[in-house]
Protein backbone atom coordinates (compact mmCIF):
# COMPACT_ATOMS: atom_id res chain seq x y z
CA UNK A 1 0.00 0.00 0.00
CA UNK A 2 1.38 3.42 -0.86
CA UNK A 3 2.43 6.01 1.64
CA UNK A 4 1.20 4.34 4.79
CA UNK A 5 1.22 0.70 5.61
CA UNK A 6 -0.42 1.23 8.96
CA UNK A 7 -3.77 -0.43 9.19
CA UNK A 8 -6.61 0.79 11.30
CA UNK A 9 -7.98 -1.90 13.59
CA UNK A 10 -9.97 0.16 16.09
CA UNK A 11 -8.75 1.36 19.46
CA UNK A 12 -9.24 0.06 22.95
CA UNK A 13 -12.19 2.32 23.65
CA UNK A 14 -13.70 2.11 20.18
CA UNK A 15 -14.84 -1.20 18.79
CA UNK A 16 -14.89 -1.07 15.02
CA UNK A 17 -16.58 -3.84 13.07
CA UNK A 18 -14.36 -5.56 10.58
CA UNK A 19 -16.24 -4.10 7.63
CA UNK A 20 -15.72 -0.64 9.02
CA UNK A 21 -12.00 -1.25 9.50
CA UNK A 22 -11.82 -2.37 5.90
CA UNK A 23 -13.57 0.74 4.69
CA UNK A 24 -11.22 2.98 6.64
CA UNK A 25 -8.17 1.22 5.26
CA UNK A 26 -9.53 1.29 1.72
CA UNK A 27 -10.21 4.99 1.98
CA UNK A 28 -6.72 5.66 3.35
CA UNK A 29 -5.08 3.56 0.65
CA UNK A 30 -7.02 5.17 -2.18
CA UNK A 31 -6.63 8.66 -0.71
CA UNK A 32 -10.34 9.32 -1.02
CA UNK A 33 -12.60 10.82 1.60
CA UNK A 34 -14.59 8.33 3.66
CA UNK A 35 -18.26 9.21 3.96
CA UNK A 36 -19.88 7.73 7.06
CA UNK A 37 -23.61 7.47 7.56
CA UNK A 38 -25.58 5.68 10.23
CA UNK A 39 -28.20 5.98 12.92
CA UNK A 40 -27.53 8.61 15.57
CA UNK A 41 -25.38 7.21 18.34
CA UNK A 42 -23.53 4.63 16.28
CA UNK A 43 -20.26 6.47 16.82
CA UNK A 44 -19.77 8.27 13.53
CA UNK A 45 -17.91 11.18 15.02
CA UNK A 46 -15.99 8.97 17.40
CA UNK A 47 -14.62 7.04 14.46
CA UNK A 48 -12.37 9.87 13.34
CA UNK A 49 -10.99 10.28 16.86
CA UNK A 50 -10.34 6.59 16.98
CA UNK A 51 -8.58 6.60 13.60
CA UNK A 52 -6.39 9.47 14.70
CA UNK A 53 -5.57 7.73 17.96
CA UNK A 54 -5.08 4.32 16.37
CA UNK A 55 -2.76 5.60 13.67
CA UNK A 56 -1.21 8.20 15.99
CA UNK A 57 -1.98 11.17 13.86
CA UNK A 58 -3.25 14.61 14.69
CA UNK A 59 -7.00 15.10 14.35
CA UNK A 60 -8.41 18.27 12.86
CA UNK A 61 -12.15 18.67 13.39
CA UNK A 62 -14.24 20.87 11.16
CA UNK A 63 -17.73 21.14 12.63
CA UNK A 64 -20.25 22.10 9.98
CA UNK A 65 -23.13 24.41 10.81
CA UNK A 66 -25.96 25.58 8.62
CA UNK A 67 -24.10 28.80 7.93
CA UNK A 68 -20.73 27.22 7.14
CA UNK A 69 -19.37 27.98 3.70
CA UNK A 70 -16.92 25.79 1.86
CA UNK A 71 -14.57 28.74 1.67
CA UNK A 72 -14.32 28.85 5.49
CA UNK A 73 -12.53 25.53 5.48
CA UNK A 74 -9.87 26.74 3.10
CA UNK A 75 -8.98 30.21 4.26
CA UNK A 76 -10.52 33.40 5.57
CA UNK A 77 -9.48 36.81 4.38
CA UNK A 78 -9.93 38.96 7.47
CA UNK A 79 -10.93 42.16 5.74
CA UNK A 80 -12.42 43.63 8.89
CA UNK A 81 -9.11 43.43 10.73
CA UNK A 82 -7.44 44.98 7.75
CA UNK A 83 -10.02 47.76 7.78
CA UNK A 84 -9.35 48.50 11.43
CA UNK A 85 -5.64 48.46 10.89
CA UNK A 86 -5.92 50.83 7.98
CA UNK A 87 -8.05 53.24 9.98
CA UNK A 88 -5.78 53.35 12.97
CA UNK A 89 -2.75 53.25 10.80
CA UNK A 90 -0.61 51.28 13.22
CA UNK A 91 -0.04 48.30 10.95
CA UNK A 92 1.15 47.85 7.44
CA UNK A 93 -2.00 46.96 5.54
CA UNK A 94 -0.37 46.59 2.15
CA UNK A 95 0.67 43.03 2.94
CA UNK A 96 -2.52 41.05 2.40
CA UNK A 97 -1.03 37.75 3.46
CA UNK A 98 -1.05 38.97 7.09
CA UNK A 99 -4.81 38.88 6.92
CA UNK A 100 -5.18 35.44 5.38
CA UNK A 101 -6.07 32.86 7.99
CA UNK A 102 -6.13 29.23 6.98
CA UNK A 103 -9.26 27.23 7.71
CA UNK A 104 -9.37 23.64 8.92
CA UNK A 105 -8.66 22.12 5.52
CA UNK A 106 -5.92 24.68 4.92
CA UNK A 107 -4.36 23.67 8.24
CA UNK A 108 -4.52 20.02 7.28
CA UNK A 109 -2.91 20.66 3.91
CA UNK A 110 -0.02 22.64 5.35
CA UNK A 111 0.64 20.24 8.22
CA UNK A 112 4.14 18.74 8.03
CA UNK A 113 2.72 15.30 8.84
CA UNK A 114 -0.28 13.39 7.61
CA UNK A 115 -3.35 14.26 9.66
CA UNK A 116 -6.89 12.99 10.02
CA UNK A 117 -9.54 15.53 9.06
CA UNK A 118 -13.09 15.14 10.33
CA UNK A 119 -15.75 17.06 8.46
CA UNK A 120 -18.57 16.58 10.90
CA UNK A 121 -22.22 16.57 9.82
CA UNK A 122 -21.68 17.80 6.30
CA UNK A 123 -25.42 17.64 5.62
CA UNK A 124 -26.04 20.54 7.99
CA UNK A 125 -24.60 22.99 5.51
CA UNK A 126 -26.13 24.42 2.39
CA UNK A 127 -26.98 22.06 -0.46
CA UNK A 128 -24.14 23.41 -2.58
CA UNK A 129 -21.54 22.97 0.14
CA UNK A 130 -20.21 19.54 -0.89
CA UNK A 131 -20.00 20.58 -4.52
CA UNK A 132 -17.91 23.58 -3.57
CA UNK A 133 -15.37 21.27 -1.96
CA UNK A 134 -15.17 18.76 -4.82
CA UNK A 135 -12.07 20.09 -6.45
CA UNK A 136 -10.20 20.78 -3.24
CA UNK A 137 -10.80 17.29 -1.87
CA UNK A 138 -9.95 15.72 -5.19
CA UNK A 139 -6.59 17.36 -5.82
CA UNK A 140 -5.99 18.40 -2.20
CA UNK A 141 -4.90 21.87 -3.17
CA UNK A 142 -6.42 25.32 -3.48
CA UNK A 143 -5.51 28.78 -4.60
CA UNK A 144 -5.70 32.04 -2.68
CA UNK A 145 -6.41 34.66 -5.33
CA UNK A 146 -5.76 37.60 -2.95
CA UNK A 147 -2.13 36.66 -2.61
CA UNK A 148 -1.72 34.47 -5.66
CA UNK A 149 -0.53 31.66 -3.41
CA UNK A 150 -1.39 28.00 -3.98
CA UNK A 151 -1.66 25.70 -1.00
CA UNK A 152 -1.05 22.05 -1.81
CA UNK A 153 -1.26 19.22 0.66
CA UNK A 154 2.16 17.90 1.68
CA UNK A 155 0.56 14.62 2.68
CA UNK A 156 -2.91 13.67 1.58
CA UNK A 157 -4.89 13.81 4.81
CA UNK A 158 -7.26 10.99 5.77
CA UNK A 159 -10.62 12.67 5.38
CA UNK A 160 -13.64 11.37 7.29
CA UNK A 161 -17.00 12.94 6.54
CA UNK A 162 -20.10 12.21 8.60
CA UNK A 163 -23.66 12.74 7.50
CA UNK A 164 -27.04 12.31 9.17
CA UNK A 165 -28.84 12.21 5.84
CA UNK A 166 -30.65 15.46 6.52
CA UNK A 167 -29.92 16.46 2.98
CA UNK A 168 -29.22 14.44 -0.08
CA UNK A 169 -25.58 14.81 -1.05
CA UNK A 170 -24.84 15.58 -4.70
CA UNK A 171 -23.97 12.63 -6.92
CA UNK A 172 -20.73 14.13 -8.16
CA UNK A 173 -19.58 14.38 -4.57
CA UNK A 174 -20.64 10.82 -3.74
CA UNK A 175 -18.76 9.44 -6.72
CA UNK A 176 -15.52 10.69 -5.23
CA UNK A 177 -16.13 9.27 -1.78
CA UNK A 178 -15.76 5.88 -0.19
CA UNK A 179 -19.03 5.14 1.54
CA UNK A 180 -19.75 3.20 4.67
CA UNK A 181 -23.01 2.81 6.51
CA UNK A 182 -22.57 1.94 10.18
CA UNK A 183 -25.39 -0.43 10.92
CA UNK A 184 -26.75 -0.59 14.43
CA UNK A 185 -24.63 -2.99 16.49
CA UNK A 186 -26.08 -6.42 17.23
CA UNK A 187 -26.34 -7.74 20.79
CA UNK A 188 -22.94 -9.40 20.78
CA UNK A 189 -21.17 -6.30 19.54
CA UNK A 190 -23.19 -4.14 21.91
CA UNK A 191 -21.93 -6.21 24.82
CA UNK A 192 -18.36 -5.51 23.77
CA UNK A 193 -19.07 -1.82 23.42
CA UNK A 194 -20.63 -1.54 26.87
CA UNK A 195 -17.84 -3.64 28.28
CA UNK A 196 -15.25 -1.22 26.91
CA UNK A 197 -16.92 1.65 28.75
CA UNK A 198 -17.74 -0.21 31.97
CA UNK A 199 -15.24 -3.05 32.32
CA UNK A 200 -16.32 -3.95 35.85
CA UNK A 201 -19.95 -4.46 35.05
CA UNK A 202 -21.69 -7.58 36.33
CA UNK A 203 -22.41 -10.02 33.51
CA UNK A 204 -25.92 -10.64 34.68
CA UNK A 205 -26.79 -6.96 34.77
CA UNK A 206 -25.28 -6.33 31.36
CA UNK A 207 -27.09 -9.23 29.74
CA UNK A 208 -30.42 -8.19 31.23
CA UNK A 209 -29.94 -4.54 30.34
CA UNK A 210 -29.08 -5.36 26.76
CA UNK A 211 -31.98 -7.72 26.43
CA UNK A 212 -34.35 -5.05 27.70
CA UNK A 213 -32.71 -2.42 25.51
CA UNK A 214 -33.26 -4.38 22.31
CA UNK A 215 -36.79 -5.09 23.37
CA UNK A 216 -37.43 -1.36 23.77
CA UNK A 217 -35.90 -0.74 20.36
CA UNK A 218 -38.20 -3.31 18.83
CA UNK A 219 -41.34 -1.53 20.00
CA UNK A 220 -43.37 -0.57 17.01
CA UNK A 221 -44.14 3.12 16.59
CA UNK A 222 -41.37 4.77 18.58
CA UNK A 223 -40.49 8.22 17.29
CA UNK A 224 -36.91 8.02 18.45
CA UNK A 225 -35.35 4.68 19.12
CA UNK A 226 -32.78 4.69 21.93
CA UNK A 227 -29.19 4.50 20.71
CA UNK A 228 -25.87 3.33 22.08
CA UNK A 229 -25.17 6.47 24.07
CA UNK A 230 -28.55 6.16 25.80
CA UNK A 231 -27.84 2.54 26.64
CA UNK A 232 -24.52 3.56 28.19
CA UNK A 233 -26.25 6.21 30.30
CA UNK A 234 -28.90 3.71 31.27
CA UNK A 235 -26.41 1.07 32.31
CA UNK A 236 -24.73 3.65 34.48
CA UNK A 237 -28.04 4.69 36.00
CA UNK A 238 -28.86 1.04 36.73
CA UNK A 239 -25.50 0.51 38.40
CA UNK A 240 -25.65 3.67 40.48
CA UNK A 241 -29.25 2.95 41.43
CA UNK A 242 -28.24 -0.53 42.55
CA UNK A 243 -31.03 -2.20 40.63
CA UNK A 244 -31.50 -5.92 40.96
CA UNK A 245 -30.74 -7.44 37.52
CA UNK A 246 -33.77 -9.70 37.86
CA UNK A 247 -36.04 -6.69 37.82
CA UNK A 248 -34.64 -4.95 34.76
CA UNK A 249 -36.78 -6.60 32.10
CA UNK A 250 -39.93 -6.71 34.15
CA UNK A 251 -39.85 -3.14 35.49
CA UNK A 252 -37.64 -1.22 33.11
CA UNK A 253 -36.41 1.23 35.79
CA UNK A 254 -35.18 4.70 34.72
CA UNK A 255 -36.90 4.27 31.36
CA UNK A 256 -36.67 8.04 30.89
CA UNK A 257 -32.96 7.65 30.24
CA UNK A 258 -33.71 5.55 27.19
CA UNK A 259 -36.78 7.30 25.87
CA UNK A 260 -36.74 11.06 25.68
CA UNK A 261 -40.14 11.72 24.21
CA UNK A 262 -43.41 11.72 26.16
CA UNK A 263 -45.23 9.81 23.48
CA UNK A 264 -42.55 7.14 23.19
CA UNK A 265 -42.62 6.77 26.94
CA UNK A 266 -46.36 6.16 26.87
CA UNK A 267 -46.13 3.69 24.01
CA UNK A 268 -43.45 1.75 25.84
CA UNK A 269 -45.37 1.71 29.11
CA UNK A 270 -48.47 0.40 27.37
CA UNK A 271 -46.50 -2.29 25.63
CA UNK A 272 -44.84 -3.22 28.88
CA UNK A 273 -48.06 -3.82 30.72
CA UNK A 274 -49.16 -6.34 28.13
CA UNK A 275 -45.76 -7.34 26.79
CA UNK A 276 -47.39 -8.05 23.49
CA UNK A 277 -45.10 -8.67 20.56
CA UNK A 278 -45.02 -5.98 17.87
CA UNK A 279 -48.39 -5.85 16.35
CA UNK A 280 -49.08 -5.14 12.78
CA UNK A 281 -52.33 -3.63 11.59
CA UNK A 282 -54.47 -6.40 10.17
CA UNK A 283 -55.03 -5.99 6.47
CA UNK A 284 -58.67 -5.59 5.68
CA UNK A 285 -59.88 -7.06 2.49
CA UNK A 286 -62.88 -4.78 2.04
CA UNK A 287 -63.30 -1.07 1.96
CA UNK A 288 -65.59 1.17 3.82
Amino acid sequence: MPENCQLFVGTKDYIAAEELQNSVNISAALGRPLLIKGEPGTGKTMLARSIAEGLQKELIVWNIKSTTKAQDGLYIYDTVQRLYDSQFGDHDVSEISHYIKLGKLGEAFTSPEQVVVLIDEIDKADLEFPNDLLWELDVMSFNIPETGETITARHRPIVVITSNAEKELPDAFLRRCIFHYISFPDEKMMKEIVHVHYPDLEDKLLAEAIKAFYWVRSIHGLQKKPSTSELLDWVQALTVGGIDPEKISSELPFLGVLLKKDRDFKVASQQMSGRVPNRKAPMRSFWR
Binding site: E19, I26, F179
Partner: peptide
Protein backbone atom coordinates in the same frame (compact mmCIF):
# COMPACT_ATOMS: atom_id res chain seq x y z
CA UNK B 1 -15.63 -11.52 1.36
CA UNK B 2 -12.90 -8.90 1.18
CA UNK B 3 -13.98 -8.17 -2.35
CA UNK B 4 -17.59 -7.95 -1.23
CA UNK B 5 -16.73 -5.29 1.37
CA UNK B 6 -14.35 -3.46 -0.92
CA UNK B 7 -16.71 -3.27 -3.85
CA UNK B 8 -19.58 -2.23 -1.63
CA UNK B 9 -17.68 0.53 0.07
CA UNK B 10 -16.33 1.89 -3.21
CA UNK B 11 -19.33 1.41 -5.50
CA UNK B 12 -22.41 1.87 -3.34
CA UNK B 13 -23.09 5.34 -1.99
CA UNK B 14 -26.31 4.94 -0.11
CA UNK B 15 -27.49 2.43 2.45
Amino acid sequence: YGFYCLARTVLVKSE
